[in-house]
Design a protein around this nucleic acid. Structure first.
Lengths: 354, 354
DNA sequence: GTGAAAGCGCTAACAG
DNA sequence: CTGTTAGCGCTTTCAC
């Protein structure tokens, strides 16, 4: 008993065991330089390493090479499933590229400044930033220290950094095209608060998508916040005006909501009005938040591929870092990747009753 | 322009700037040893460090001290909000204790073996394990390498490791007590699959909680999986038997589900049977998964404090690591912390109609 | 209180 | 192809 933490095996020990020099072992174990080593020696070294259970000491390698091969992944918090997907995607891609992701959240209780210091002390080679622009103190600190950054889910106002962001126009077009393909021509919009960016952006995108089919919205309900109740109220109002009016435009058969929460509010309104989904009204949401596949009927919505966005951000970051290492800091153009979304067709949409 | 990544400031530079020796700076900047330094020198060193923007190089410190001050946090995946909370809690506590968390998921696409190697190469001082027992290959590899581990949300079958787990008895007692306090006496149970641990555990806990009130379940519905539809079917069956039987026991007024998903299935069944929640039937879930506050009526459930569990696991781990460093590996007893839960009363429960 | 010197484990010139 | 040598930046004896 009492196995007093066996001290990790070093390169030196492997070298001794294999009867060669340390540097030979170092080369043999590096996939990039193993071809420099004779086959016989290579085999011997590998056998020794395996037998002794050698694991390279990253700290020592970092110190020597001046690169840590680790990348910070900065998120506002880790409990949000969207952030989870971004982290997961970034991890997958980074590991595959031979880097180690360091996940760091702003909800750690540490001050903004300390979060930056922590990352800097780890000598990260780059950082993927998914935090809100309000927290840019960190980003600035990191950039000043010469850390390369790529943004996820938010654009860079200065246009200096590459960013991977969602394509709002594409997203709304998917919703509208889906309804149109089902045969809907009288479509009402349930828009989010026009005081915030995504609110106006999505409304405009929806109008544009309708226009592409030479349509105008049958009605537009404005919600003053992204809450279920706001969606419900706006929707009830829409239904009321539908009755009072007789024009063709007012008799809509489908609702395109700016967001899943608002769509769920529309569910409530339909319920109260005694209308069945999707028989009397088709409803489509936006975002595919968790559990909307569990409501009745399961919500048709548009999924943002946050996982892929995380992967893409990682790939761009590493590419830029390695380009910089090769070509020097000279003029790299920053990319903006607009991400495609995907339609998730479930039970809340159907062809209109003829 | 062309700021070619300024090389990080080293201790040596700070020493030069302050006109003292490197070792003096090292001592001055370590809160544990700064008292060894004269006040004047201390002030001078600190000023220099700040002025030059010195950040300690953790890799160098790790190498020298033989401890990385970093802790692995192993989760099955990062997209699950439960895991998010555990990671978040662990991060908060670890950072406060001066450690750096390395979040690693099994969904990274890397093989189990490689995930372990990665952690080992980082020379982590310990690991918090929130993965399922199926993935114990990793855990075994880490333990064999002498890494200290603490489990979250799962017990150690061998009783060697400390674990922070939910208290199923407490959780079910909260549900039952809540229903009892509202006046319910004829309570049906919706149990999960008896083939898995949490299924039997929760059922037994519920029976025990009822017994504490000298009650027996009015009925027990067994679901063969944790799905909404399984909950619905089991619940419909319960309702059918309720009609056919006339005994007092069969006419239950409340349902206590083993899980939120099953509870949502019960919602469906009530809907189909034309019963209103909570007027005709009270329903209580378990877990408080995201969005159950958005269903109609909002689900009354029991919340597991995963965030606190993550924090607690971190504290225990560090405590044990530091005790081991101080006292040697000698016989440490492993702790099992049963975590308290909290009732979240929302709209799905009410007093029974008299 | 402070300085000097050694070395953690590894990689990267430079020799041969 | 393989060995030699010199550190990366830091902490930690041991002197003074």
């Amino acid at each position: 008993m009492a196995s007093a933490t066996p001290r990790p095996v070093t390169l030196r020990q492997v070298a001794q065991h294999a009867g060669v020099h340390v540097s030979t072992v170092s080369r043999a174990l590096d996939p990039e330089r193993r071809h420099l080593i004779g086959e016989a020696v290579l085999a011997r070294v590998e056998a020794s390493a395996r037998e002794l259970g050698f694991r390279p000491n990253y700290a020592a390698a970092s110190l020597r090479r001046g690169r840590s091969m680790s990348i910070g992944v900065l998120v506002p918090n880790m409990t949000n499933p969207v952030m989870g997907q971004i982290m997961q995607g970034a991890e997958t891609a980074l590991v595959k590229l031979g880097y180690f992701p360091l996940m760091v959240s702003m909800r750690s209780g540490a001050s903004t400044q300390l979060v930056a210091e922590r990352l800097l002390s780890q000598r990260i080679d780059g950082v993927i930033v998914a935090t809100a622009p309000q927290e840019d103190v960190i980003l600035r600190t990191l950039l000043e220290a010469g850390i390369h950054a790529v943004l996820v889910n938010r654009p860079d106002k200065l246009g200096r950094l590459s960013a991977v962001i969602g394509d709002a126009e594409h997203a709304m077009a998917l919703s509208i095209d889906h309804l149109h393909a089902l045969g809907h021509r009288r479509i009402a919009l349930l828009a989010g608060p026009q005081s915030i960016l995504s609110g106006t952006q999505r409304l405009n995108a929806a109008l544009k998508a309708l226009q592409a089919h030479k349509l105008k919205p049958a009605a537009v309900g404005l919600c003053d916040e992204y809450s279920r109740d706001a969606g419900r109220r706006a929707c009830l109002q829409l239904l009321a005006s539908r009755k009072s009016r007789t024009g063709a435009g007012a008799r809509f058969t489908a609702i395109c909501a700016a967001n899943d929460i608002l769509a769920l509010g529309a569910y409530d309104a339909m319920h109260e009005a005694g209308l069945a989904i999707p028989r009397d009204m088709s409803i489509v949401g936006q975002n595919d938040i968790p559990l909307v596949d569990l409501v009745s009927p399961p919500l048709t919505t548009v999924r943002v591929q946050h996982h892929e966005m995380g992967m893409q951000a990682a790939r761009i970051l590493i590419e830029e870092i390695e380009a910089r290492a090769a070509n020097g800091a000279a003029g790299q153009a920053s990319k903006v990747v607009l991400f495609r979304h995907e339609m998730v067709v479930r039970g809340s949409t159907a062809a209109p009753r003829s």
